[in-house]
Design a protein around this nucleic acid. Structure first.
Lengths: 239, 239
DNA sequence: GTATATCTGTGCGGTAGCGTACAGATGTTT
DNA sequence: AAACATCTGTACGCTACCGCACAGATATAC
């Protein structure tokens, strides 16, 4: 038996108008995303766009020497593959599944067709893309000015906002790759948070036990991004 | 006497189709941008979008404590004010004139009207916005992984690509604000470039004397951004 | 239950960049 | 020409983070 309004778990899909939905629904394909899976490689054309339901996808910039940094994170509020409708077809960044879960996907061609109908879907996607711009910008400034401690808090909160529950399956090694810092640095910062009783870290599983405590410790970057996402995505698009 | 095809100095305007041009031309207003002028403040709605001709505009993320970082730079190849057509109306970042010069501007409302006609203009603007995304992403990763030396080279080259000539009017203090580092750090890095004979720095005026030398010293980030801009903007938009 | 792989904690020397302070250089104004 | 503002160079101690090395802890497989 099919879950009746499953797709609504993704807020972009959930905000569609009737006619858009009826056009798209038959082509939406539910897929399970596994940890570490790559949805998009640098310079390659994606076959689909992905609308996460309870999964998280990281957009990573990978450099020649293999070092990487997460530039944005996408969850139920967004879509992976904006370059398909923005017209560039590819991007130099990678999209990696950071937290396993489900997503709907839609063939690139169909996404573009819907986008160019210039309806509510287009407006939502553009506003979402602007939110993504803000997240990237804030990531840049955070990378420059804030300590690993603060960045870890930001990362935890941004991730937590995108999944149900308060637990992340994630090794320190992977977090370090996301933040673009040493694994030992994450160990140290996570240790401080642990000692302060904010999180409980147990071999690849972080449980946030005091969310408010994290919010008190995080840098302003988290709030800036969150406010902008709320502003851009939680209201109806106005033209 | 009017310069006949002045607007073509901006490549977005220059790539418009006949009918678009005839609609927009009467409303394009030529303005002179002065060094340090602000075109957009955090959270405020811009009245116009700006198409630089020979000026450079920096997009800055400013934090509560006043520290800032440049997240992207816009010149003749682009437009300042993407949030107007992306639908968000405002952004949390500021737009500051980094190099004085001229630009055409267009009222926000008219920009949106043209955008929603979904013609060549829309496609160009979207591709440009994707290029901007790439620049921000690469800035984030560069801030994380590269030395001030390398970042200064990147900044010089990106700026130089956007103006005629090989001279920038710019104090080290301002460059430091852009890069989000100490002024002394810029002094030191610029000193190295000077000793290597790549630039000539004289109180607020940098002359690049060996562009190729800079390109040999810059990190990969410059090339990634440049390639993506070329790819996305120098060809006709394909749907 | 034991072996194994992986993940986490800790220590240590090295360094890039920070904050601060101040001196010298160079345009500009009068 | 002298006075001034501003920009540039240098120095010094400090801290966060890096790279490396390795030991201990914990899940999983057999």
């Amino acid at each position: 038996m099919l879950a009746p309004h499953d797709f609504q778990k993704n807020s972009l899909l959930g905000s569609l108008e009737e006619d858009e939905l009826s056009r798209l629904l038959p082509d939406l394909e539910k897929v399970t995303l596994t940890l570490g899976e790559s949805l998009s490689e640098s310079g390659k054309v994606m076959s689909h766009v992905y609308f996460p339901l309870d999964s998280i996808v990281s957009l990573l910039c990978v450099m020649e020497n293999g070092a990487s940094t997460e530039i944005a994170v996408v969850g139920y509020e967004g879509v992976v593959g904006v370059s398909l409708f923005m017209g560039g077809e590819t991007t130099p960044s990678r999209a990696i599944v950071q937290s396993a879960g489900e997503a709907y996907r839609l063939k690139g061609r169909l996404m573009k067709n819907e986008f160019y109908r210039a309806g509510a879907m287009q407006r939502m996607l553009l506003r979402y893309t602007q939110a993504l711009l803000t997240q990237m910008a804030q990531t840049a400034v955070c990378n420059r000015h804030h300590s690993v401690d603060q960045q870890l808090c930001r990362w935890l909160l941004l991730s937590l906002d995108r999944i149900p529950g308060n637990q992340l399956k994630m090794t320190q090694e992977l977090i370090a790759n996301m933040l673009g810092v040493r694994r030992e640095g994450v160990t140290e910062s996570a240790g401080k948070l642990q000692k302060s009783g904010l999180i409980d870290y147990r071999r690849g599983r972080i449980t946030v036990t005091d969310r408010q405590g994290l919010e008190e410790r995080v840098c302003e970057c988290y709030e800036v991004v969150k406010r902008e996402y709320d502003r851009l995505l939680e209201h109806e698009a106005v033209m």
